[in-house]
């Protein structure tokens, strides 16, 4: 088994409390299912959309992205047998229903 990080990018906000509740239910169901199959190493954390970008010349700017579709909203650490399986497992993520995407990145081994 190898480790992979799911980076959750973008995703539309819920338009009503009920839709928010549905979104959350869908996420919880999906993650629970992955956990039951032994793929979750660390459920991860949500990230604040705002932050700072620090560059070599010590310039500090707001960032990291201007466009909300590129903002990473959180991450999860999963285990899978290869990248293909990790990507396949990500395909059930509810974020796709809300115009977001999952970036699947292998954790470097050595």
């Amino acid at each position: 088994m190898s480790e992979y990080v799911y980076l959750y990018r973008g995703g539309r906000r819920a338009e009503s409390p009920a839709e928010g509740e549905q979104q959350m239910q869908a996420w919880m169901t999906w993650l629970k299912d992955l956990a039951a199959k032994g793929h979750i190493k660390d459920q991860g954390q949500p990230l604040e959309p705002e932050g700072k970008v620090v560059r070599a010349n010590r310039s500090v700017t707001d960032g990291p992205y201007a466009e909300s579709k590129d903002i990473i909203g959180g991450y999860t650490l999963v285990e899978a047998k290869d990248l293909a399986q990790a990507a396949d497992l990500a395909s059930g993520c509810p974020i796709f229903r809300y115009d977001g995407l999952v970036e699947v990145r292998p954790v470097m081994k050595m």
Binding site: A14, G20, Q23, W27, Q43, G74
Partner: peptide, 15 residues
């Protein structure tokens, strides 16, 4: 609305 969106973001990963 902000509050609910935040709740979704936080709860979905942290429970």
């Amino acid at each position: 609305q902000d509050v609910f969106c935040r709740a979704v973001e936080v709860w979905k990963l942290r429970g």
